[in-house]
């Protein structure tokens, strides 16, 4: 559905599933999925780091695939299913990737952590037993300035072990 607002930018009604719940919003044609999640739905675990698709802090899963939500328009997510970091733990129990990040010291400032954890989760969903190289490739689009990735890689590999 399309409506004309006072400004020239068209507005659209979008319906999407976020973390299992249906959400409806009226968005501008140029609203990004990132801004929709953060500003409209208050899923602020999805971080804004560069708005150019370089840093990966805004990574979410779109129909199970990791994407930079700053590069996806909200209208493109219409009818799709999004998982943000807030949707990963179930009833207060952390996902094994989250748990491994906590226990392996993979988190320092934490700003890259939501995106990093979702990239790790998406990897393990498609490849439950990745090699170290595959882990590094899976998170190559998520920048971290604190850790040198050492413990992040360790944590994702540990979560994979916990799977088996």
């Amino acid at each position: 559905m399309v409506t004309e607002a006072k400004t020239s930018v068209k507005r659209h009604i979008v319906t999407l599933t976020v973390n299992g719940d249906e959400h409806v919003a009226l968005v501008k044609a140029n609203t990004t999925l990132l801004d929709l999640l953060r500003e409209e739905f208050d899923y602020t675990g999805t971080k804004k780091g560069c708005e150019l698709g370089d840093c990966g802090a805004c990574t979410v899963m779109l129909d199970g695939e990791p994407v930079n939500s700053c590069l996806i328009l909200a209208v493109e997510a219409d009818g799709h299913s999004v998982t943000t970091i807030e949707g990963l733990d179930q009833n207060g129990k952390l996902d094994p990737v989250q748990e491994a990040f906590v226990n392996h010291g993979a988190i320092q400032c934490g700003y890259c952590s939501p995106g990093m954890i979702l990239s790790g989760r998406a990897l393990l969903n498609r490849n439950p037993h990745p090699t170290e190289r595959e882990v590094r490739e899976a998170i190559a689009g998520n920048l971290c300035r604190c850790t040198g990735y050492v413990r992040i890689v360790e944590a994702i590999l540990a979560a994979a072990d916990a799977n088996s």
Partner: peptide
């Protein structure tokens, strides 16, 4: 604060 950061 690791759990706060891991959960968003």
């Amino acid at each position: 604060d690791a759990r706060d950061k891991a959960t968003g």
